[in-house]
């Protein structure tokens, strides 16, 4: 475990906590894409199948459980909570899941490191995570006006991805046989998707004005 990896995991954790906190305290999920949250729940459910087969460390197991429980709780809140679900803007959040899920699954069947169920699910989760933020970014573009917590949520997710890239560079130079093209390319694609959002986030931060995306 290196410092970039730990910092990456912590910003990832913070992003989830910010979102849960927003939903739990304000009792609102305005500006949050349910589609993205459902895709993340699917990402974790398919990636962490190794919870049943491999033990890596207590840290690893705990973090996996936290991400699984939190992602499914967020989906539950938006879909079923008596008050929260009323703030969900269904008409704006129109991205279709299968546009992302299907190509990712087919790609995982073709491009993977090993043709086994566990490995294909793991690869699928990497591809899906790379694009799972798209419904959220589309929703942000549509509503344009973003509250602070939603902005911070997306910012923290982007920070997590950037730190993971530094982690890979560090591991490449310090660990033998650490070459993982599938992980790197899907991770890079994922990080690049945030580039546009980051640009406007920093602009608004620098000028000390509320974050607003151009139409």
């Amino acid at each position: 475990m290196n410092i970039f990896r730990l910092a990456g995991d912590m910003t990832h954790l913070a992003s989830v906590l910010v979102l849960l906190l927003k939903i739990h305290t304000i009792k609102s999920c305005a500006g949050i894409s349910l589609k993205t949250q459902e895709l993340y729940a699917l990402v974790f459910a398919t990636r962490y199948l190794d919870l049943f087969t491999d033990y890596i460390s207590l840290y690893n197991t705990l973090m996996k459980l936290i991400f699984l429980v939190s992602s499914f709780s967020i989906v539950w809140y938006i879909r079923h909570h008596k008050i929260v679900r009323r703030s969900y803007d269904k008409d704006q959040d129109t991205f279709r899941h299968y546009f992302l899920v299907l190509p990712c699954f087919l790609l995982a069947l073709v491009i993977n490191e090993k043709f086994t169920v566990k490995e294909i699910m793991w690869t699928f989760s990497l591809y899906l995570e790379a694009v799972a933020i798209l419904p959220q970014l589309v929703l942000l573009q549509r509503t344009r006006n973003i509250d602070n917590l939603t902005g911070q949520y997306v910012f923290l997710l982007g920070a997590y991805r950037s730190l993971y890239i530094l982690n890979w560079i560090y591991r490449y130079f310090t660990e033998p046989h650490y070459v993982h093209w599938i992980t790197w390319i899907s991770g890079l694609v994922q990080t690049l998707l945030y580039a546009d959002f980051f640009y406007y986030y920093f602009q608004s931060w620098k000028n000390n004005v509320k974050l607003e995306l151009p139409a």
């Binding site: 890596i56 996996k64 991400f67």
Partner: peptide
């Protein structure tokens, strides 16, 4: 998961 594998990542 042996050293050098990215499967220990979250």
């Amino acid at each position: 998961t042996q050293k050098g594998s990215s499967h220990d990542e979250l």
